[in-house]
Design a protein around this nucleic acid. Sequence first.
DNA 1: CTGTTAGCGCATTCAA
DNA 2: TTGAATGCGCTAACAG
Lengths: 375, 375
Amino acid sequence: METGMFNLFTGYSLFFSKTLRLEILMNMIKRDVTIYDVAKVADTSPSTVSRVLSDSSYRVSPRLKERVEKAAEQLGYLPNLIGRQLKKNSNTNIGVVIPSISNPFYPNLLLGVEERARRSGNHIFLCNSYRSPEVEREYLYTLYEKQVKGILISSISSDYRVFQDLQNRGVVFVSFDQEMEGISCSNILFDYEKAGFLAMEYLFQKGHRRIGYISAPLNRYSRIQIMQGVKRAVKVFGLEMGSEYIQIASQECELVEESYEFQNGKSATQRLLSLPERPSAILACNDMTAFGVYHQVNEYRLQIPQDISVIGMDDIPMSSMISPGLTSIHLPNYEMGKLASQLLIDLLNNETTQVDMMLPPKVVERNSVRSISIT
Amino acid sequence: METGMFNLFTGYSLFFSKTLRLEILMNMIKRDVTIYDVAKVADTSPSTVSRVLSDSSYRVSPRLKERVEKAAEQLGYLPNLIGRQLKKNSNTNIGVVIPSISNPFYPNLLLGVEERARRSGNHIFLCNSYRSPEVEREYLYTLYEKQVKGILISSISSDYRVFQDLQNRGVVFVSFDQEMEGISCSNILFDYEKAGFLAMEYLFQKGHRRIGYISAPLNRYSRIQIMQGVKRAVKVFGLEMGSEYIQIASQECELVEESYEFQNGKSATQRLLSLPERPSAILACNDMTAFGVYHQVNEYRLQIPQDISVIGMDDIPMSSMISPGLTSIHLPNYEMGKLASQLLIDLLNNETTQVDMMLPPKVVERNSVRSISIT
DNA sequence: CTGTTAGCGCATTCAA
DNA sequence: TTGAATGCGCTAACAG
């Protein structure tokens, strides 16, 4: 066994073999092992240990390198990333701020974010704002205090001073699914206008002329855009749809969002089906609302799509499981998550500059729309 | 305007008014403002600033305190929590490790975790293991390196050396939904055995005697427990159910879990409906599987619950939106999230010791089970 | 009550 | 190629 006896200039090693020294050390420390401990065992300096173990590009002789690695292994050394972070003023954490993970729109998106972030060693702070500007604001500042440099956000706030402030402090934002007006940052959006148009076009091509549209309150980017797409389609295809066919929920408490949208779908459908001239098809502003339509149609003892056609938007996983399968406009949220994550990381590394992205929707055809032969 | 002219012992303030000093300072620093900057402006020492701004219990005179707060405000000071963390060797981050957030079982659970964590200033690192032991392992070690002291986990690994190692290093684990065998940590579980029994009991009381049970592969705590509950019910109620009524999927690729479960529900239903003596009711090991049952029953042009009854488990949000509403065994996952979070935080604060919790299921009655009059 | 000082763990400049 | 020294921002002895 190689001993430290020959290392005349290190006090410890003069008397004890390396393994003995190791044991003494390990008994002495209840605290975590640091590069100093590793240095002691490997008979070198902390700086060298740092060079070896933080895979810096710095040259270290193979012999020493090996000694350090062995010592680190023996001691079960794991780096303290907080120390590194304080020193380097950089980290591998990103914040994701969304209204609520319980909205089925987000899990897949988040999966995309995480998948991409993980590949570059990044971790995700998940922040649910619960649709409260105060909670959102609080989270953003805490993230900043935790030195998070990059934040992915689908904001519900309209007070952009917070973002302005944090941007001035160096935080990089990428906004997704919601447009951030009045502030300059990268946006990743679905082309909701096109989505609205596409849905109407699809129905038109299937022979539908009297179409009901059900929307949640027009207080968000997505909803406003869809509405515009719908209106454009009405004009382009020369549909004669009175305003009674456009059901926009009045703004209410949306605390439990999913159930709210389901209810909205139900009640709006009730109104549409009570019209003197029933629509032959209903477009819902999202799938959850479409499920409300399904439910109400069912209560009326009508059949989808025989008696009435339904088309949704978002294409959440459930839409393929329900009977009949819900035809829906697919918004690629997993891809959006990946792109947003990628973009943010690139921005943080100065590998790109601000960009806006627009993701195209596409129709996913299932069994909830029937063809009408035009007479 | 109060000037520093009278503070004879501070070099700076001898010559400049406070506001001037402030401006000079703010121009000089492009970097973040620290307690040293605040101290300079407030004409005091960093330690005093720290005492004031980190709401320590330390007494500081009201006058000085106010001066410090004003200076901090003027400078827009925000604490660097990394510095604090390095010094105190403690933080307010907790890790949550789950198979995949896209499984609709988890979002509400996570919401509970986060809700509770937020109240104590904690942040959530979300880690999806994708059902890969390697990914899980990697995440756990990175969390440790980021000095996360508490981890909530629904583990898919059976190699407990990782947990052992990290526990030795001081990490506190709370396991939820999956039992961690061979390792000593707090567990929060649903009483799946009871849930299985309850479902069967409910069907029995509704007059059902020939019941089909559809399970995913018996490779997890939950599934094994449910199976036992089902078997106990069969015995207790004296049901004569041949093994052909118990459909357990063989172990396959479960990569896209939700769609897998849906498919499993479909194919198992097909087999059950082909039996010479059809079951009058089907119990599915979770709601997603039950949706598969719905789908297949629909393909057979049969009606739920008139022709066949269905009962699920988990009570995911979708179950109340589908038609007919799916009767299901409710497992309180939001509450589980809150409890797990609470427990972990208490453990970290040494305010409690290791405990196991068992959360009771309960039946949520909707419209997918009919009463059979016994002849 | 207030200030001086040291050090948490690490990376890096500088000197050897 | 290696090591000594410094400081990232903060808190907590300790001294006054």
